[in-house]
Amino acid sequence: MADNKETEYVTLVSSDDFEFKILRSAACIAGTIKKALDPQSGFRETTQNRVVLSTINGVVLEKVCEYLYYNQKHAESKDVPDMEIEPQLCLELLIAADYLDV
């Protein structure tokens, strides 16, 4: 159980096996990912610093990652410019957001 190695980056894996390495702090904006990586609980995700999200495909996950960074970047600023989201992605993004608790 070589866990608790809190790396700076974590890996998110999409259903079609795209891997996204993003900042842990950004990833933890999403509630589900945060809980999955919670060092207190010691689930498998924690030991591997890797979260497989089998309900989300690569395209959506990419957008999610973009949003996470976007959220982190503008966390404390006002008059944030709107993020561009293609209409065809909207529904899936909503589902993903619901799932990830963003």
Binding site: A36, F43, R44, E45, S54
Partner: peptide, 8 residues
């Protein structure tokens, strides 16, 4: 034995 489980 949580470490064997996948949270996701």
């Amino acid at each position: 034995n949580a470490s064997r489980l996948s949270y996701e």
